[in-house]
Amino acid sequence: QEVDTIELTRQVKEKLAKNGICQRIFGEKVLGLSQGSVSDMLSRPKPWSKLTQKGREPFIRMQLWLNG
């Protein structure tokens, strides 16, 4: 299904801030990505339709983390 990447990243940033989790830790533990990649993804999320399967994976992980 289509994911609203802008809304998703907004919710993730909100939860990170609320729980005092830094992007570096979130990136390493949840997404398996560097802090730079995570920062870029959270500040400039690409539309779901423009992402490859590999590009979608971190957003799917974010969704699971939010719902977890």
Score class of each variant (00 low, 15 high):
Gln1Lys: 15
Gln1Phe: 10
Glu2Ile: 10
Glu2Ala: 04
Glu2Gln: 10
Val3Trp: 01
Val3Tyr: 05
Val3His: 06
Val3Ala: 08
Val3Pro: 09
Val3Asp: 07
Asp4Met: 08
Asp4Asn: 10
Thr5Ala: 05
Thr5Met: 12
Thr5Val: 02
Thr5Ser: 07
Thr5Lys: 09
Thr5Ile: 07
Thr5Arg: 07
Ile6Pro: 06
Ile6Leu: 07
Ile6Lys: 15
Ile6Gln: 14
Glu7Phe: 15
Glu7Thr: 02
Leu8Ile: 15
Leu8Val: 14
Leu8Arg: 13
Thr9Ala: 14
Thr9Asn: 03
Arg10Trp: 01
Arg10Leu: 05
Arg10His: 05
Gln11Trp: 02
Gln11Thr: 08
Gln11Cys: 03
Val12Lys: 07
Val12Met: 10
Val12Ala: 07
Val12Ser: 10
Val12Phe: 04
Glu14Leu: 08
Lys15Asp: 01
Lys15Pro: 11
Leu16Lys: 14
Leu16Tyr: 04
Ala17Tyr: 06
Ala17Lys: 14
Ala17Met: 07
Ala17Pro: 09
Lys18Thr: 10
Lys18Leu: 07
Lys18Pro: 03
Asn19Asp: 15
Asn19Phe: 15
Asn19Arg: 15
Asn19Tyr: 03
Gly20Arg: 11
Ile21Phe: 09
Ile21Ser: 02
Ile21Gly: 02
Ile21Lys: 02
Cys22Arg: 07
Gln23Asp: 02
Arg24Phe: 03
Arg24Gln: 10
Arg24Trp: 08
Arg24Thr: 04
Arg24Met: 03
Arg24Glu: 15
Ile25Cys: 04
Phe26Pro: 01
Gly27Gln: 03
Gly27Ile: 11
Gly27His: 07
Gly27Ser: 13
Glu28Arg: 12
Glu28Phe: 06
Lys29Asn: 15
Lys29Ala: 05
Lys29Val: 06
Val30Asp: 03
Leu31Asn: 03
Leu31Gln: 03
Leu33Ala: 11
Leu33Lys: 10
Leu33Cys: 06
Leu33Gln: 05
Gln35Tyr: 13
Gly36Lys: 12
Gly36Leu: 12
Ser37Val: 12
Val38Gln: 04
Val38Thr: 15
Val38Ala: 06
Ser39Glu: 14
Asp40Phe: 05
Asp40Gln: 10
Asp40Val: 03
Met41Tyr: 13
Met41Cys: 13
Leu42Ile: 07
Leu42Gly: 04
Leu42Ala: 03
Leu42Cys: 04
Ser43Ile: 07
Ser43His: 14
Ser43Leu: 08
Arg44Ser: 12
Arg44Ile: 07
Arg44Asn: 14
Arg44Glu: 07
Pro45His: 09
Lys46Thr: 06
Lys46Met: 08
Lys46Val: 09
Pro47Cys: 10
Pro47Glu: 11
Pro47Leu: 12
Pro47Gln: 11
Trp48Asn: 00
Trp48Pro: 00
Trp48Cys: 00
Trp48Gln: 00
Trp48Ser: 00
Trp48Lys: 00
Ser49Gly: 08
Ser49Ile: 02
Ser49Val: 07
Ser49Tyr: 05
Lys50Tyr: 08
Lys50Ala: 10
Leu51Phe: 04
Leu51Asp: 00
Leu51Pro: 00
Leu51Ile: 09
Leu51Lys: 00
Thr52Ala: 12
Thr52Leu: 12
Thr52His: 02
Gln53Tyr: 04
Gln53Asp: 14
Gln53Glu: 08
Lys54Glu: 15
Gly55Asn: 00
Gly55Glu: 15
Arg56Asp: 00
Arg56Cys: 01
Glu57Ile: 10
Glu57Leu: 06
Pro58Val: 13
Pro58Asp: 09
Phe59Cys: 00
Phe59Leu: 03
Ile60Ala: 11
Ile60Leu: 13
Arg61Ser: 02
Arg61Ile: 01
Arg61Trp: 01
Arg61Thr: 09
Met62His: 00
Met62Lys: 00
Met62Glu: 00
Met62Val: 02
Gln63Leu: 02
Gln63Cys: 02
Leu64Phe: 03
Leu64Arg: 15
Leu64Gly: 11
Leu64His: 08
Trp65Leu: 01
Trp65Arg: 00
Trp65Cys: 01
Leu66Ser: 00
Leu66Met: 05
Asn67Pro: 01
Gly68Pro: 01
Gly68Asp: 13
Gly68Thr: 02
Gly68Lys: 10
